[in-house]
């Protein structure tokens, strides 16, 4: 009489048991491991791909570490020369074709890269800008060294030695670039009331020989100059070569920015009194990490400081600093 009904009840109980089992399964699975490693793909476009370039090598290494840590499918695409703006723009278009979840871009040009960066966003791909700014505020995140802070570190190092008689010179890299402007701003902020002691600001267009030349000219013009800031590797090394050539290592306190083997040698030799170095590995790591996070959620645009460190001749060989100054290379 109620036989069919009975069977329905029984089957319902069985199905309930099975559903319960599945529920337990999914709960145990989801509490056991949040399944976020959902195959995020990221393309990193540095300014240059160059085995011998420590800065970009470290960025790539940091990016790889982040990719490994979060199971990101990371591809790196780039040009062979930092100045190949058109080449990078082409590569951006290629990267968009590959439809990654996110692109981490170190723009080669302040202006010319903008339309291509916009294309990335228009294609629905998340964009993270690293290292250098664009003329427009694009990208969901900007990971770079806080250059104002870096500049401030430079000037704060020499602050104790400054008095009314100090003559300060600044050798910048490219006039009008954001990094040059920001570092100069930082130096001025750090100097505080001695800001007026800055006698001259010259630019070398990121060339060692021009840096050498403009420094010699500047010293000739201000023979009493006793503090020189070099605002990137080219300007710092070029200026240091000039100071060394003029034999003024003792008279002039030099603070450089960025590092190279030559710069470290001159720091060890006492030509530089200090240098401020960036943390490119952090930049790569944070850039890819941000790309990953943004791909998983909609986060507000933000700026992230990847950090900088001031190193003197005494601190070259600290555990931490030697890692920054002497990136390990297989060729050593």
């Amino acid at each position: 009489m109620g036989k069919k009904q009975n069977r329905k009840v029984f089957i319902a109980s069985g199905v309930a048991t099975i559903l319960m089992l599945l529920a337990i399964y999914s709960i145990s699975t989801y509490t056991g491991s949040a399944r976020t490693d959902a195959g995020i793909s990221v393309i990193l476009i540095p300014k240059v791909i160059d085995e011998d370039n420590d800065f970009w090598g470290a960025i790539t290494e940091g990016a790889r570490l982040a990719a490994q840590e979060k199971n990101i499918d990371l591809a790196i695409m780039g040009t062979a020369a930092e100045t190949d703006v058109n080449g990078q723009n082409r590569i951006i278009e290629e990267a968009i074709e590959k439809k990654p979840n996110a692109i981490v871009l170190a723009p080669s040009a302040y202006e010319e890269t903008v339309p291509y960066a916009r294309k990335i966003q228009e294609a629905g791909i998340k964009l993270v800008i690293i290292d250098s700014k664009l003329s427009e505020n694009l990208g969901a995140a900007f990971v770079a060294t806080d250059n104002v802070e870096g500049g401030r570190k430079m000037s704060e190092f020499v602050k104790d030695d400054i008095d009314e008689n100090s003559v300060i010179g600044i050798v910048g890299h490219v006039k009008g670039t954001s990094t040059a402007a920001e570092r100069e701003q930082g130096i001025r902020e750090g100097l505080g009331k001695y800001e007026s002691q800055i006698a001259d600001v010259v630019f070398c267009d990121s060339s060692y020989s021009k840096a050498f030349q403009v420094t010699c000219d500047m010293i000739e013009e201000h023979p009493d100059m006793n503090i020189i800031f070099g605002m990137n590797e080219y300007s710092a090394v070029g200026a240091a070569r000039a100071v060394k050539a003029l034999g003024l290592e003792q008279q002039i306190t030099m603070v450089g920015f960025d590092s190279s083997l030559e710069e470290v040698e001159m720091l060890e030799a006492g030509v530089f009194d200090a240098i401020v170095v960036q943390r490119p590995m952090n930049m790569g790591y944070l850039g890819v990490s941000m790309a990953y996070q943004i791909s998983l959620s909609t986060e507000m645009p933000q700026d992230i400081d990847s950090g900088s460190v001031l190193i003197t001749s005494d601190t070259i060989y600290t555990e931490e600093n030697q890692k920054l100054l002497f990136p390990f290379r297989e060729s050593n």
């Binding site: 570490l65 490994q68 840590e69 943390r279 952090n282 790591y285 555990e319 931490e320 890692k323």
Partner: peptide
């Protein structure tokens, strides 16, 4: 494994090798 790695500490606890040494110094 993809996420696994090796590091080496000397007898005093100094890092001899760590793939993320710089990230450790930076606190990441």
């Amino acid at each position: 494994g993809t996420k696994g790695y090796v590091f080496i500490l000397d007898a005093q606890g100094n890092l001899i090798y760590h793939p993320k040494q710089q990230l450790i110094y930076s606190g990441f």
